[in-house]
Measured scan of single mutants.
Amino acid sequence: KKVTINGVEIKFNNPEEAVKFALELAKRLNLRIEFHGDQIKIE
């Protein structure tokens, strides 16, 4: 399963991993996060 985070394609074994990764990243950098299907936007 491929997920695009800020235009960067990252391959994950499952979608939950991708979501956890994105949330952790957003929390660490104190950023806002948006989900659009397989696209995750962090700003």
Rank of each mutant, 00 (worst) to 15 (best):
L25E: 01
G37T: 05
G7F: 10
K27G: 08
V19T: 05
F21A: 09
F12R: 00
K2H: 08
I42P: 00
P15M: 14
G7I: 14
E34G: 03
K1D: 07
I40C: 08
I33E: 00
K2G: 05
L23H: 04
R28G: 08
V3E: 04
R28Q: 09
A18W: 14
E16N: 08
E43C: 15
N13W: 12
N6A: 10
L23K: 07
L31V: 12
K41M: 12
V19I: 14
D38G: 07
T4D: 03
A22Q: 00
N13H: 07
K2I: 15
K20G: 03
L23M: 10
F21C: 15
E34V: 12
L31N: 00
H36R: 06
P15Y: 15
D38Y: 06
L29C: 15
Q39K: 05
E16L: 12
V3R: 04
F21G: 02
V8N: 03
K20L: 08
H36F: 13
N30A: 06
E43Q: 12
I33C: 06
N6C: 15
V8M: 10
E24C: 15
A26Y: 07
I42D: 01
V3Y: 04
I33W: 05
I5V: 08
K1Q: 10
E24T: 05
K41C: 14
V19N: 03
L29P: 01
N14G: 06
N14L: 11
E34T: 12
F12L: 03
K41D: 02
E43F: 15
V19W: 14
D38W: 10
N30V: 06
Q39Y: 14
A22Y: 10
F21S: 05
K1Y: 15
E17V: 07
A22F: 14
F21Y: 09
I5E: 02
N30G: 13
N13V: 07
E16M: 11
L31Y: 03
K2P: 06
F21V: 06
K1W: 15
N14F: 12
N30P: 03
N14W: 11
E9L: 13
V8H: 10
E9R: 07
N13F: 12
F12W: 05
G7K: 07
H36P: 03
L29M: 07
N14C: 13
K1R: 12
F35L: 06
L31A: 12
A18Q: 03
L23P: 00
K11S: 11
I10A: 01
N30K: 09
V19R: 09
V3M: 05
V3A: 03
P15L: 15
D38V: 06
E9G: 05
E34I: 14
R28Y: 11
K27W: 05
N6K: 06
A22M: 13
N14I: 07
L29S: 02
E16Y: 11
E43D: 08
T4H: 08
R32H: 09
F35D: 01
L23Y: 08
E34Y: 09
E9F: 08
K2V: 15
E24D: 09
I5P: 03
L23F: 07
K20D: 06
L25A: 02
I33V: 12
D38L: 07
E43V: 15
N13P: 10
T4K: 08
I40F: 02
D38A: 04
A26L: 12
L23G: 02
G7V: 11
N6E: 04
A22E: 01
K41F: 14
V3L: 07
L23T: 10
A22K: 00
V3K: 02
E9C: 15
G37M: 08
G7D: 03
G37L: 07
L31C: 13
E9V: 14
G37E: 11
F21H: 03
F35I: 11
